[in-house]
Amino acid sequence: MRYRYTGPADIAARSRHHPAGTPAGSAADIRAWLAATDPRDRRDPFTYVITIDGVLLLAPRRSEHVACAAGADVLAAGEITFTPDGGVSAVTNQSTGYCPQPCCWPAVDAALNRAGIAHPGAFTSAFVFRHCTVCTHLNVIKDDVYVCAHCDTDLPPTLRKS
């Protein structure tokens, strides 16, 4: 599945002035990227996207996913934490701009495997997102409760195919 940016337009506009994420095709690429990162930020999760071509792009945590992806559609997006040797210790699909569903894991798995990067084998935390069809509020689904936290409207239990 392909994900289009659905977050606030002003964030997308501001993100046009930020550099795109750095491609990471191997554990060596990740080690080099980490070495160039502020040591205080290395313990935090980083922003990542998987491009339509299956490439892993990385950016500092406080970066917007839409900036990391240079505004393009993605196969997956979220946060990722690395071990000192360039492996992955944690990975999520937490991106409120793209709202990727947990079913995007195969794209993450393929990109990490292609690069030879050790990883946990699944999302360490997976999120389900739904936009309210009435008020358009973005909801993170918790405990399988598909009700808008803003207006109490029932949310669709499944995504519509586009």
Rank of each mutant, 00 (worst) to 15 (best):
A36S: 03
G86R: 02
V134K: 13
T136N: 12
T133E: 13
H150D: 10
V49R: 01
A20C: 04
S95R: 07
C99H: 11
L58W: 10
H119Q: 12
R43N: 14
A72V: 09
T22Q: 08
D29Q: 09
P106E: 06
G86D: 04
F123R: 09
Y146F: 15
A149F: 11
L57V: 08
V140D: 09
P8M: 04
R16P: 03
N139M: 02
H150R: 13
I30Y: 14
S26W: 07
Q94R: 15
S125F: 12
A28P: 12
L138T: 01
S26T: 07
R31I: 07
A126H: 01
A28Y: 10
A118E: 12
A111V: 04
L34V: 08
D44L: 14
D143S: 14
R40C: 09
I52R: 13
V55I: 11
Y98N: 00
S26H: 06
A115S: 02
E79G: 00
P84L: 10
D10W: 12
T124A: 08
D10H: 14
A36P: 00
S95L: 05
C135A: 10
G71T: 12
D53M: 06
T37K: 10
K142M: 11
P106I: 03
A72N: 08
K142I: 11
F82D: 00
R16A: 15
D38G: 06
A67S: 09
S95V: 03
S26Y: 05
S89G: 10
G116W: 06
R40N: 07
T83V: 08
G86S: 03
H65G: 03
G97S: 02
R43W: 05
F123C: 08
P106M: 06
R43T: 15
A36T: 03
R31Y: 14
D73K: 04
A122G: 15
H119K: 05
R42D: 05
G116H: 04
C148L: 01
A13N: 10
A12C: 06
Y146H: 15
F82G: 01
T92E: 01
T136F: 13
A27M: 04
I52F: 07
V55N: 10
A9K: 11
P8F: 12
A77H: 01
G97Y: 10
I141P: 04
P39Q: 05
V134C: 11
C132N: 06
I117G: 12
T83M: 02
H18L: 14
H18E: 15
P8G: 07
V74A: 08
T22H: 14
G54Q: 07
G78A: 12
C148N: 00
G25P: 05
A13T: 13
A27R: 07
E79Q: 14
